[in-house]
């Protein structure tokens, strides 16, 4: 049985995503721009940061966002579609894309928050179109990756690595 929730990102669509993130990085002078699944999975990123830190950042930001939505509920709001974490030097803007993804911009005090908000909104709209397309048409690309040899190798690797 196949799960319906897989997201299979092809080379071409990742290029489209990278273009949008690249432009946003440039226009906001951001140090990092991240595209996440709402569960915290990193789909794509721009900027210099080790993979391990990116993965941790993704999980934590998704957690913060989810917790803010519960706050919204308690206030009788349907949603906070955008949250801002403001530091002395660096700030983080997180916006919801559609219902399933998050766009994160890490920027410093040189950049005006208002600009980040507007440009992130525009980028989010563009990304939503790409991501909806990715979600709709992923099945074929998957077949090329997940074959019998792959499945066997994964099982062996799991047995090898996950033992006392």
């Amino acid at each position: 049985m196949e799960q319906l929730s897989n997201l299979v990102v092809s080379e071409g669509e990742l290029g489209n995503i990278a273009r949008v993130l690249g432009r946003l990085t440039l226009d906001t002078a951001a140090s990092h721009v991240l595209l996440l699944d709402k569960s915290g999975q990193l789909i794509a990123a721009q900027g210099q940061m080790g993979q391990r830190d990116l993965i941790a950042l993704g999980a934590l930001l998704a957690g913060a966002f989810s917790s803010s939505r519960h706050v919204a509920e308690i206030l009788g709001e349907t949603d906070f579609r955008h949250i801002l974490q403001q530091g002395l030097h660096e700030s983080i803007s997180t916006s919801l894309i559609g219902e399933q993804w998050l766009l994160v911009v890490v920027f410093d005090k040189q950049t005006h928050i208002g600009l980040v908000k507007v440009l992130a909104r525009k980028a989010a709209d563009e990304l939503e179109r790409v991501l909806e397309r990715v979600r709709a048409g992923g099945g074929r690309a998957k077949e090329q990756v997940i074959n019998v040899q792959f499945r066997n190798s994964v099982e062996n690797t799991i047995d090898l690595l996950f033992q006392d």
Partner: peptide, 15 residues
């Protein structure tokens, strides 16, 4: 949800 990134050749799953 599982993320299969054909371009960067990565697969992520959540447990």
């Amino acid at each position: 949800m599982a993320l299969i990134n054909v371009a960067t050749r990565e697969i992520h799953c959540n447990i």
